[in-house]
Every structure is written in C-alpha cells, then in structure tokens.
C-alpha cells in the first residue's frame, strides 16, 4: 500500500509539471497581447512598450515560465494585469466560496445518488426502478440554472427560507455561510446526482450478476444482505471515478449558478479574466484547477486501493 501511494504521488508530481508547461505554452501562444488590449487600439508604441515591461511581458518566455512556476511554489501568483492586485488574493477570496460550494454539492449529490441508485438496482424493472430512472433522466436533461431559478422562486421568494442570492462570507459563522450556499449547492447537485445515481445503478446491476453474488446467496445470505455485504463495495469503483470527475467540474463549472445566485466564485473570476485578457489570472486559475483535478484523481486512486485489494498488490 505504501509503495502504491508513493507511485501515485510520483505520477502526481510529473502530471503537475507537465500540466504547468502545457498551460503556459498554450496561453502564451494564444493570440492577443494583454498590454495592447488594456491600452486600446490607438495606444502609442512607447506606452505599449512601457506597459509590457512593467507587466514583465518583455522578458524571454523560458524565464517567464520559471518565474511563474517558482512564484506559485512560494505562494506568489503574480499581479493581475487589470486589477493590479496580487492574484493570490483574488483567487483565495473566490476559493472560499467555490470550494465549500463544490464540496457541499458533492456531498448532497452523493447523499441523493447512493440511495437512489441502490434502490433502483435492487428493484430492477419494477415500478420503483422505473420512477427513479425517469427522475434521473429528467435530472440529466434539465439544465441546472433552470433548477436554480425554480429553487429561488419556491424557497426564496415564496417560502422565504433562503436568500435569493449573494454571499456574506464565513465571518458570521459556519451555519450562516452554509445556509447561504444551500440553494446553489442543491441546484448544482441535482444534475450531478442524476448522473451518479445512474452510474451507481448500472454498476451495482453488473455486480449483482457476478458469480460471487450467487455464492453469497448459496451461503444463506438474503438478497439484501448479499447486496450490502458483497455488492456495494465492488460496485463502488466506477462510482468513485465519476465522483472525482464531478468534483473538478463543480469547482470551476459552476459559473452559471454563480451568476444566478450572485456568488463571487471562481467561475465568474475566470470568465471576467478571459474577457479582459488578464493572462496571469487565467493561468493561475487554470493551474489551480489542474492541481485540484490531479489531487482529486490522486485521492480517487487511493480510494480505489482501499476498496479493491487487488490494486494494492499490483504495483
């Protein structure tokens, strides 16, 4: 298990190094000069050159890459071209909204999907299965912003249980913050839960057809006992993969939901920075997202090994 963990860790570091290089090259190669964008079409060449040198755009690219990477390692992500504030401050403020929101949505989606998937699989072809599958079909098909609007309409405007939008920060206490994130988290979680429930169901159905499930029944386990003791853990591997993928999406892909609920999250920041050609911010956020994806994959890999002993010895 230790060797497995070390191997995964090594591959994590290599992935990060490669990713940073790819991000830098792609963004540097992308057309559009931030300096000329900031000064507009009619800028004087001298002013442009001055700004370029101020932003550090005139040094050789290799040097800029290493400066960027070593900066990131020491927590210095550079300064935003447009806002002239340290990128780290801009990101960390947003991260305190996006990260808890993503986690919250993930927990909710798992809480909905696991029971729904298990319920449907254990009643394959029956009315319960058909209604759960119908609901997930709807969940996959309906866009999350529409869910968001319905939630606002029902719970904020009519019932007045939640605020319709905005986020006042964590300073007023954990539960207050969580309360404010509840509607957006539900809106994000519903479509994800629909996908996850379907994966859970089909994965469990595959496992239920395995020979060892029949062995378990022959030992005298009831259908239910066999499902919980032998089915679930074996069905978990594909589900973990999807959870890993969903987390990465939730972290940055929630831009529309952030817009609907007026949340100062990462998604909005990416959008603003791309339109303003604020390359350094884009680079940093993309790198952060890549880091989180790789980190989540690493955790998913470790979770695989916990679930499946065959992976532990196959190193």
């Amino acid at each position: 298990m230790l060797r497995y963990t070390l191997k995964r860790l090594l591959s994590l570091l290599i992935s990060l190094a490669v990713a940073s290089l790819v991000i830098f090259v792609v963004i540097e190669v992308a057309p559009g000069d931030p300096a000329s964008f900031m000064l507009g079409m009619n800028a004087q060449p001298e002013t442009l050159a001055a700004l370029r040198s101020e932003l550090g755009l005139d040094v050789p690219k290799v040097q800029r890459y290493f400066a960027w990477v070593s900066g990131m390692l020491s927590g210095d992500f550079g300064t935003s071209y447009t806002y002239r504030t340290p990128v780290i401050d801009m990101i960390s403020g947003r991260l305190w909204v996006s990260l808890p929101l993503a986690l919250y949505a993930l927990v909710l989606s798992s809480l909905i999907a696991f029971p729904a998937g298990i319920f449907a699989a254990s009643r394959r072809g029956q009315a319960g299965d058909i209604s759960v599958m119908g609901a997930t079909q709807l969940g996959v098909a309906v866009p999350n912003f529409w869910f968001a609007m319905i939630l606002v309409l029902v719970f904020a405007i009519n019932l007045r249980w939640f605020a319709a939008g905005g986020f006042i920060g964590w300073n007023n206490g954990f539960w207050v913050g969580l309360h404010a994130l509840t509607l957006p988290a539900i809106a994000l979680a519903l479509p994800q839960a629909a996908i996850l429930a379907r994966v859970m169901r089909s994965s469990l159905l595959d496992v239920l057809g395995e020979d060892f499930m029949r062995t378990a029944r022959a030992k005298g386990l009831s259908e239910r006992q066999a499902l919980w003791r032998h089915g679930l853990r074996n069905a978990l591997i594909p589900v973990l993969t999807i959870i890993g993928l969903q987390f990465s999406f939730l972290l940055a892909g929630s831009i529309i939901i952030e817009q609907v609920f007026y949340l100062p999250g990462l998604g909005r920041l990416v959008f603003q920075s791309i339109s303003a050609r604020d390359l350094i911010v884009v680079e940093s956020i993309v790198m952060l997202l890549v880091f989180s994806v790789i980190m989540v994959n690493f955790l998913v890999d470790l979770a695989y090994a916990v679930v499946d002993p065959r992976l532990r010895s196959r190193t």
């Binding site: 395995e210 029949r214 062995t215 022959a218 030992k219 386990l221 032998h230 499946d308």
Partner: peptide, 24 residues
C-alpha cells in the same frame, strides 16, 4: 436462507469468479 449454507452447500463451476475479490 436458513437452509442454504446450513443444510445445503453449493460449489460452482468458476472458482475464479465465485469468490468476492474484495474480501479475504
């Protein structure tokens, strides 16, 4: 369920897949 495994035991054809891979 009380009879299966207690009064009747069963052995299957495929030993490779008849055991749960994640349990000892």
């Amino acid at each position: 369920c009380n009879i299966r495994g207690n009064d009747i035991g069963m052995v299957f054809q495929e030993p490779m897949s008849a055991l749960n891979p994640v349990h000892t």
